[in-house]
């Protein structure tokens, strides 16, 4: 039913402009005009507003923003795991040549893990404590591949464990016998069991210390190369982004405010919010300088008029308080949502 509604929706010229971005090979993931609303007692909160981007195989995209900016909602929406009171209002998520928003529930269940996999935030809480790791992995394979022989399922699991650098004995263990980093790597192993084309990692290292964090990120990097998947890394640690991703997307109040390559983002951020994010970063050269971003993230229930960032923006102009900036692609191929760049587009 949803697909009918969606296919009637005219694709705006903006969308085609965005997907025509010169990013080399055919994109493996296309997100178009995705919109999610939560219907709460206090009113409607638009958690995702007109989000579009594309990603090619083997590309790594970092999705950054403050808590409440819609990062995790985006991940859940792409997996179609938004639960009421949330609803996907519009938009499409296309992986390869399958439109996920058009699938029925059963087909979507099959698509999860085999086309698009999700590595959750708290690995400590996402494994079943009373099932062996192996049983959970076998479960995942069985529900997608009917009639697969036991030995081939076993091989598949053993291979996945090996690619995340875990010992085969982990297969027989319970979650409580593993350290935080090992649990997170089990989650990665489950995520890559069926060689998905897209992997979404939602703050996969937020609870881990630096050494384990590096280990986990290196693991994701390696398996991603092995199966040539596109990866979306969600987080708010810009340092991690600098070390890991190719492209960075910055979210603010449910909208993408800038999408740039990691080099452009760190050397020449365009959107004032992205600039503030970059300059608030601690580095070795600016010891003792603390530059936060003044003000607070707006509540999605009461978004400011015009650009949602304008009350905190140091470059705010009159137009920012009245008119919502459009998503624009600059000549350089970067995407910025800000009135400052109206002429450059």
């Amino acid at each position: 039913m949803m697909s009918e509604v969606l296919s009637d929706r005219p694709t705006t010229s903006r969308t085609s402009a965005l997907s025509a971005r010169p990013s080399g090979p055919e994109p493996v993931l296309r997100v178009q005009n995705l919109e999610v609303t939560y219907y709460t007692d206090a009113g409607r909160a638009k958690a995702l507003d007109d989000v579009s981007f594309t990603l090619s195989a083997g590309e790594k995209l970092g999705m950054v923003g403050e808590s409440g900016s819609g990062k995790s909602t985006l991940a859940l929406a792409m997996m179609r795991m938004i639960k009421p009171p949330g609803r996907i209002e519009a938009g499409r998520v296309i992986v390869g040549d399958t439109d996920l928003t058009g699938l029925d529930d059963d087909a979507m269940r099959k698509a999860r893990l085999s086309k698009i996999a999700y590595i959750p935030q708290g690995a400590m809480n996402s494994l079943n404590p009373v099932m062996r790791i192996g049983a959970q992995m076998v479960d995942a394979v069985k529900s997608h591949m009917n009639g697969e022989s036991r030995s081939s399922i076993g091989d598949r699991c053993a291979h996945a464990l090996k690619s995340v650098d875990l010992d085969a004995s982990v297969f027989r263990m319970y979650a409580h016998e593993l350290s935080g980093g090992m649990k997170q790597r089990v989650c990665i192993a489950i995520g890559i069991l069926l060689n998905p084309q897209v992997i979404i990692a939602d703050e996969p290292t937020s609870a881990l210390d630096v050494v384990t964090q590096r280990q986990v990120m290196e693991t994701i990097d390696r398996v991603q190369k092995e199966i040539n998947a596109a990866v979306i890394l969600i987080g708010h640690d810009m340092g991690l982004m600098a070390q890991f991703v190719d492209k960075v997307a910055v979210m603010y109040a449910g909208r993408l405010v800038e999408v740039s390559t990691v080099r452009e983002m760190f050397t020449d951020p365009k959107h004032p919010y992205a600039r503030a994010l970059i300059s608030s970063l601690p580095n070795l050269d600016n010891k003792g300088v603390f530059q936060g971003i003044p003000g607070l993230a707006p509540s999605l229930l009461r978004l400011p008029t015009g650009c949602a960032f304008h009350p905190r923006c140091t470059h705010a102009m009159d137009i920012c308080g009245t008119t919502r900036p459009e998503v624009r692609m600059l000549a350089s191929g970067r995407v910025v949502t800000c009135h400052l760049f109206n002429e450059e587009a």
């Binding site: 964090q213 070390q243 080099r263 760190f266 970063l281 601690p282 580095n283 070795l284």
Partner: peptide, 13 residues
Amino acid sequence: VDSIPWPNLEKRW
């Protein structure tokens, strides 16, 4: 120190 993700493209892990 080697594992700190510095937000600096020239300073890799």
